[in-house]
Every structure is written in structure tokens, then in C-alpha cells.
């Protein structure tokens, strides 16, 4: 046996999962797709005493169109979201980002909620939650609360979800009309976690001036990073190469990446700036195209 022994419970639904969590002690874990957790357990880096399986609950895959956004059930597998016509039309950036998550076989099982709660700062989806002003709906036997993406991520692999809580759904807000997007990452192989990545959404007015911007980075700090200072540089301005460079330059100063076996912190900081310029270039180009 690769993983250490554990007790296993199959939850009928997320409310049931909450009840099982509250009765089974602190060393219990929710098993969603298991595409990170089981690999960690195979290495025995994780040894939960109890697993509560939500991977086969009824209607686990759900993408709901809402006014001004979409709500994705936490248990929805990534591939389902990527194949959703509604997401493809309304959230092309989200689809594009999901295609960068691991391989399609893993996305057939890995869930949106599992990825977000795992909170790997080098993963694409946590950054997407910042880019789309996401709201996280979290439940427990005690009730329900909503947390915004800016408050959700605490540090490496840590979110505000308490041991007795379960992420239920995530709402992504749709950017305004006349918006364009860009997404660039550097990874050693297709499907690997990014060494650094940057995404951008910009909204332009009729004169081509930027009225709203989102810049979200990943792989560059202990959490995904929204670069509000870099966004502010763009507001009220029309496209120019110098503008994009000035915006991206301000990204560097707020980042606190680590060096590891692959690359140095300086490399990450420098690549983050370059990728931000590229993401902004694409975002402005696409925003102009929809005008």
C-alpha cells in the first residue's frame, strides 16, 4: 500500500460531508478529486486519519449562469468547466487558464474547489479567482459564510477554510463589456506548475482609455497576487508600450518569490514583469477587437 491507512467515509452531499467532518476530528480531510491529495498520500507527505469522499456526490458537476457571473459548484471537475459552452463564451480567460492545469486526464478528476482549497500559489486557478473577483461560499454544520478572493488565501497551501468547513461553491464575476484578457506562464513542461505566470483583464471606454483593470500573478509569492498598483497605472490611460512597461515594472516591487531547485527569486521577479507586459498586450488587443 502506498498511502498510510485511514478511515473512509463516502458523503451523500456536502451537508453530509460537514456532519462527517464535525464528528470525525481534526485529522480528517475532504477528498474531492484527490489529484493532489492522493499523490501526496502516495509519498506519505500527507497522512490524514479520515478521508471524507465527495468525489461522487449527485450533481457534483454544476456551472450555473447567474446575473453578472457564474457559480461553479466546488466539486465540479476542471474538465467540465473547460468544456462548458457558457464558460467558453463568458469567461474565455478562465477556460484558457484551466487548460494549463496539469493534463486532461487529471482535469477529468481534479475539481475546481479542490484546486482552490489546496491553494498552491503556483497554480493557475487561485490567480483566476483574484482576476474575476471571486466569492467563496463556505459551509459547516454551524452555517454558511462568504469570503472574497482577496481574503481567501492565507499562505502556501493555506486558506481561511477551517478544519470543520467545506467549500461549497465559487462565484466568478463577469468582466464588463469591452474587456479583453491575456494570460502567460512559464513552466518547464506542459502541465507543470508555473515557475511564474501573469494574467490580465482590461476594460476600455469608447476612446480606448482603460476604465478597469485586473492583474493577477501566480508562482511568485506565498499566495496568488493581485497587483493593484500595476492596475492603477493603467486607469484613464490609452495603450502605449511605455504604459504597459510602467505598469509591469510596478509588479516587480510587490513580489516576494522564493528561489528553489528550478529558478532563483530574481528570475521569477523578472519573468513576472515580462509576462505581465505580454498579458497586458494581449488584453488591450482583445479589448480593442470587441469595441
Amino acid at each position: 500500500m502506498k498511502p498510510a491507512a485511514f478511515d473512509y467515509h463516502r458523503a451523500d452531499n456536502l451537508q453530509h460531508a460537514c456532519e462527517l467532518l464535525s464528528s470525525s476530528g481534526d485529522d480528517s480531510k475532504i477528498l474531492a478529486g484527490g489529484q493532489t491529495l492522493i499523490a501526496m498520500m502516495n509519498f506519505r507527505l500527507a497522512r490524514p486519519k479520515v478521508l471524507i469522499d465527495v468525489s461522487n456526490i449527485a450533481d457534483g458537476n454544476q456551472v450555473l449562469d447567474e446575473d453578472g457571473g457564474i457559480r461553479i459548484r466546488a466539486t465540479t471537475v476542471q474538465r467540465f468547466v473547460e468544456n462548458s459552452e457558457s464558460v467558453q463564451q463568458r469567461f474565455p480567460l478562465l477556460c484558457h487558464a484551466i487548460e494549463h492545469v496539469a493534463h486532461f486526464q487529471i482535469r477529468n478528476k481534479g475539481t475546481i474547489g479542490g484546486n482552490l482549497v489546496n491553494a498552491d500559489p503556483a497554480s493557475e486557478l487561485p490567480a483566476m479567482s483574484l482576476a474575476f473577483d471571486a466569492e467563496f461560499d463556505i459551509i459547516s454544520v454551524a452555517g454558511r459564510r462568504t469570503v472574497s478572493a482577496s481574503e481567501f488565501f492565507v499562505t502556501y497551501y493555506t486558506t481561511v477554510v477551517a478544519p470543520n468547513e467545506v467549500l461549497s461553491s465559487i462565484r466568478f464575476a463577469e468582466p464588463p463589456k469591452n474587456s479583453g484578457w491575456g494570460f502567460h506562464e512559464v513552466a518547464r513542461r506542459a502541465g507543470d506548475y508555473a515557475l511564474a505566470g501573469s494574467s490580465a483583464i482590461v476594460t476600455l471606454d469608447a476612446a480606448g482609455k482603460c476604465t478597469r483593470a485586473r492583474i493577477a500573478l501566480f508562482g511568485v509569492a506565498a499566495t496568488p497576487v493581485r497587483a493593484t498598483a500595476a492596475e492603477d497605472v493603467l486607469i484613464g490611460e490609452a495603450y502605449s508600450e511605455d504604459l504597459l512597461k510602467a505598469s509591469a515594472r510596478s509588479v516587480q516591487s510587490i513580489l516576494d518569490p522564493e528561489s528553489d531547485v528550478h529558478v532563483t527569486a530574481d528570475y521569477r521577479r523578472s519573468v513576472a514583469e515580462v509576462l505581465t507586459v505580454r498579458a497586458l498586450n494581449d488584453a488591450f488587443r482583445r479589448a480593442k477587437a470587441v469595441q
Binding site: R10, I38, N42, L51, D53, S55, R79, Q105, I106, K109
Partner: peptide, 18 residues
Amino acid sequence: VDGLAVKSCTLLAAQAHG
């Protein structure tokens, strides 16, 4: 699994129930 390609080394047999 149910017609979808998955990697069976990171899936519990229990997850394939049914």
C-alpha cells in the same frame, strides 16, 4: 472511468465505486 481518461495511480478504488 465512465468513458473519461483518468490516471488510476492517484485515484482510490473507492472513488471508482459504482
